[in-house]
Design a protein around this nucleic acid. Structure first.
Length: 575
RNA sequence: GCACACGUAGCUCAGCAGGAUAGAGCGGCCGCCUCCUAAGCGGCAGGCCGUACGUUCGAAUCGUAUCGUGUGCACCA
């Protein structure tokens, strides 16, 4: 980053060009032997009335007095290729990385700003399956990315804890509920009676009427209904929280749909007063024709509210409460239109903060052959089961490797390591690709711990750690190691990739796209794997080289610790 | 029908504020553990970047059209 600006400045000054223009045009050549930065000269052709190749050639000829950070400049076709002083570059990077530690890639760009992230948002009384993990993990990583940039992050879990389904649950529970099972396996029991309700209601339609009545009673403060609803909610939340804890996810608020229900009338009143509501086919709607959007229904024809109304109320409440600079909704892609409408209504109501609301959509988790998850038919994978499976497979691998170890792992270390690796593997499958892509759920893919996977990265970390451990230098000493003398291909490549993490985090944040960061962290790990396979570290030729390579290892460990941390992937010292 | 995504190697995906021979992982084939943990490393094979026009000195990247897939489009969330 820093070097790009330096190179641009040098080129601009020597060639009498605009520094910003040069930096904007400067690119990374596709191949290593073409140097580290390249200036394409096509665009100057018209103005200078010369062939681009000729321009590049002339430029290269003028660039004879090189600053110390540039080792060479060559002309190739229409490009001016710049070769960095690798030793200096590596020394600089490693020294800085060791000095700043966990502040690595911290820009402070979000200092003093508040950002709200709404994510996860499961429905109460329904099992937490692999599909919910998508929102949960994307949201968690986004929150961590923003936090690392200095933002004040507020994590919101907009629970689906309201609606006619609760009338059904109340009826079903009174008819078939099993108190004991509700205590031992709350969601399992709630799901059982919910499924049964739907089955029986097909034959006895009066059940649906009863359910509607009970939901109405709940809304109107019926004591019995409220007590049951509260119980279902508490029990479900308790189960969700255990999954969250395991995933390393937490929330600042669990205010869900029910929380906003009493804040709806004010919103409706406001829209009414601003003359935005119109009656259409019996419903009260806000028309959005001028934006080429279908009207947003605010009140149904029976006068009751709808999810859009709740989202309107929630947004307003959040702005009043947090005065946010940005509020992002990590909700599935299919709801894109819904959010466009909600945001448009708020803007139309004159709230200029509506422009700071953003929907961050993500794809679907499905089975091969476009088979969708279905809670009701039982055709789903529960997240808990997936996590357990991943951890137990990891455990098998660790146990198998444990036999040949000099210092075998204790039972406790095996368990902790298996948990960290297994969960890492699952987490990574949700952030490795662009979030808008669908994920096809295949056990073999998720439980493949080789190649493009979190365990690969965790393994690289463990190897680096192991080298440091064997070297005998303490972590404090490691920070003082001299990185002078680095500069071989693999050493330089590793430093360059690590330096790219800054930009990757920035882009990932700008686009609300964790995969951009995840991908670069992966690239760094690959560069490290190559490095330690190619270069003897503990048995380096001389002391200076050994020390410099250890410093590089220490820098890698430090950088990876913080970036994997942002991704929510735990590190282990051995695996 | 309208809108929004997506279509890149056998599979899963990068690359898309246009630039030098299109990248990675998996799978396939061939090598590497007397040497820092083989969850690793090296190598080979594999692609008219859906199709057709257009813009440009230059297009996987931008525009238009077209085909295919997915999703959404009023009282469910």
């Amino acid at each position: 980053m820093k070097y790009k600006a330096l190179v641009a400045k040098y080129l601009a000054e020597t060639l009498n060009l605009d520094a910003q223009m040069v930096e904007g045009n400067l690119e990374t050549p596709p191949q290593e032997d073409m140097g580290d930065f390249a200036l394409p000269c096509f665009r100057m052709a018209k103005e200078l009335r010369k062939a681009p190749q000729k321009i590049a050639e002339d430029f290269a000829n003028q660039l004879t007095e090189l600053p110390e950070y540039i080792s060479d400049i060559k002309n190739a076709g229409a490009y001016v290729n710049v070769f960095l002083n690798r030793a200096l570059y590596c020394q600089d990077f490693v020294g800085e990385a060791l000095a700043i530690g966990e502040q690595f890639a911290h820009t402070g760009i979000g200092e003093g700003k508040t950002i709200l992230v709404e994510y996860s948002s499961p429905n109460i009384a329904k099992p937490f399956h692999v599909g919910h993990a998508f929102s949960t993990i994307i949201g968690d990583v986004l929150a961590k990315m923003y936090q690392h940039q200095g933002y004040n992050v507020v994590r919101l879990n907009h629970l689906g804890d309201y609606g006619t389904q609760f009338g059904k649950l109340i009826v079903a529970y009174e008819l078939w509920g099993d108190e004991e099972k509700l205590t031992s396996d709350p969601i399992g029991e709630l799901l059982r009676i919910y499924v049964r309700f739907h089955k029986e209601a097909e034959l006895r339609p009066e059940l649906d009427l009863e359910a509607r009545a009970r939901f109405k009673a709940l809304e109107e403060g019926g004591a019995n209904e409220y007590r049951l609803w509260q119980r279902f909610r508490d029990l479900s939340l308790k189960e969700f929280e255990s999954v969250y804890k395991r995933l390393g996810v937490h929330f600042d608020s669990y205010n869900g749909e029910s929380f906003y229900s009493d804040k709806i009338p004010a919103v409706v009143k406001e829209l009414e007063e601003k003359g935005l509501l119109e009656t259409s086919e019996g419903a009260r709607v806000v028309k959005l024709d001028e934006l080429d959007l279908p009207p947003c229904i605010v009140l149904k024809s029976d006068g009751s509210t709808i999810y859009a109304t709740r989202d309107l109320a929630a947004a307003a409440y959040r702005y009043e409460t947090y005065n946010f600079d940005k509020c992002i909704y990590v909700v599935g892609l299919p709801q894109n239109l819904h959010f466009k409408q909600v945001f448009a209504v708020l803007a139309k109501a004159g709230h200029n903060w509506a422009k700071n609301l953003v929907h961050v959509g993500f794809g679907l988790v499905k089975f091969p052959g476009d088979r969708k998850f279905s809670t009701r038919s039982g055709d789903v994978i529960y997240l808990e089961d997936l996590l357990n499976e991943a951890v137990s497979k990891t455990r098998e691998i660790i146990v198998a490797n444990n036999n040949g170890r000099e210092v075998p792992m204790s039972e406790e270390e095996i368990n902790e390591t298996a948990e960290a690796i297994g969960l890492g593997a699952v987490r990574y499958t949700f952030i490795r690709s662009g979030r808008e892509r669908d994920i096809v759920f295949e056990w073999e893919d998720i439980l493949d711990f080789e190649g493009d996977s979190a365990p690969y990265m965790q393994y690289a970390f463990a190897r680096a750690h192991s080298i440091l451990r064997r070297s005998g230098v303490t972590p404090e000493e490691a920070m003082q190691l001299s990185p002078a003398g680095l500069g071989s291909d693999s050493e330089f490549a590793l430093c360059r990739e690590m330096a790219q993490l800054n930009i990757a985090l920035q882009q990932a944040t700008d686009n609300n796209e964790p995969s951009i960061l995840a991908r670069q962290v992966m690239t760094v790990c690959r560069a490290f794997s190559r490095f330690y396979n190619q270069m003897p570290i503990l048995q380096a030729d001389n002391i200076q080289q050994r020390e410099a390579r250890l410093a590089l290892c220490a820098a890698f460990v430090s950088v990876l610790q913080t970036t994997l941390g942002i991704l929510g992937i735990r590190t282990v010292e051995r695996m």
